[in-house]
């Protein structure tokens, strides 16, 4: 089977509403609310055909409960396993938190349009994540890490409410330590041992040097954050068509049919969830 694209479904005459079974192979609690689930598609052919780009998402099925769109957190280069970082918010996301290793869930996808990795290659990148926004950005960061030589300066700005809510802390500490990336973390409410920055993520731009002609930006986080971060990037002369954001909408089908994910004249599940900021500015209700 070729990659799991719309074309492949069409050629196979397959039912795009049917998920593939996947087994939970590892569960890592990141915070009391967020957990990292590692999944393995059971069918080998499907597993081998599962290719994606950072920023794309899957529809996660908990049979009998429902489906939820979840960004893929692992790098596209990670063979055979898919990682999802999931926050408890409702029926599906709570249900998977009650499951154990070896239990079976369903996956459909990958869906949507991810970050323009190839376009970013050969340039500097500035990645900004707030809260759970790190989930899709983590995939991009891992992918960049795999191909580190193909990128210039890589700056990662991470914001969280308090130190205990920083996701993937160990991994980031290690990368910072090894100086793989320029990584700066900031929290709103520091604790007694916090040695990073304090305040909003926008503050981190003050001392940042950006070469606007040679840099791409990517931002993921709560929607309220986007205009402020973009404003900082624009102050450094970065064009809005070089800044990418991931947009969240309610989704039911993931394949452009249920109408739930519409933003302006586009469907987030097809044309998004990653849009350039220039595109987002031209979509009604996007920001």
């Amino acid at each position: 089977m070729s990659a799991l694209t719309a074309k492949a479904y069409r050629e196979l005459g397959a039912n795009p509403y049917r998920p593939w079974p996947a087994r939970i192979t590892s569960i890592t609690e990141l915070t009391p609310k967020e957990t990292l689930f590692e999944l393995r598609l059971i069918d080998k052919n499907v597993r081998d055909a599962f290719e994606f780009t950072a920023g794309q998402f899957v529809e996660l099925s908990i049979f009998g409960v429902g489906e939820a769109p979840i960004s893929i957190s692992s790098a596209p280069s990670k063979q055979g396993f898919i990682e999802l970082c999931i926050r408890k918010t409702g029926s599906v996301t709570n249900a998977i938190h009650r499951m154990r290793c070896g239990d079976v869930v369903g996956l459909r996808g990958p869906f949507g349009r991810g970050f323009p990795f190839e376009k970013m290659m050969g340039h500097d990148v500035v990645l900004v994540a707030g809260g759970l926004g790190i989930a899709p950005l983590k995939s991009l960061i891992n992918h960049i890490h795999d191909e580190r030589h193909a990128f210039g300066k890589v700056t990662i700005l991470l914001g969280a409410r308090n130190p205990s809510e920083i996701l993937f802390r160990q991994e980031f500490d290690m990368w910072r330590h090894r100086q793989d990336f320029d990584l700066i973390m900031t929290v709103d409410q520091p604790d007694s041992v916090w040695d990073g920055e304090v305040g909003l993520v926008t503050r981190l731009f003050t001392d940042l040097e950006i070469d606007p002609g040679n840099t791409y930006g990517a931002i993921c986080g709560p929607p309220v954050m986007y205009p402020f971060v973009v404003e900082e990037m624009r102050k450094k002369d970065l064009n809005v068509d070089r800044i990418y954001v991931s947009i969240e909408r309610r989704m039911k089908c993931g394949i452009g049919m249920c109408g739930h994910c519409a933003v302006g004249h586009q469907y987030t599940c097809i044309e998004g969830p990653v849009f350039s900021y220039w595109e987002a500015l031209n979509l009604e209700e996007a920001l």
């Binding site: 509403y17 049917r18 079974p21 996947a22 059971i42 099925s61 049979f63 009998g64 079976v104 369903g106």
Partner: peptide, 14 residues
């Protein structure tokens, strides 16, 4: 109906 499924095995059927 979009599909039927077996909750335990994760298999689905048209």
């Amino acid at each position: 109906r979009l599909m039927r499924f077996n909750r335990v095995t994760g298999e689905s059927y048209d």
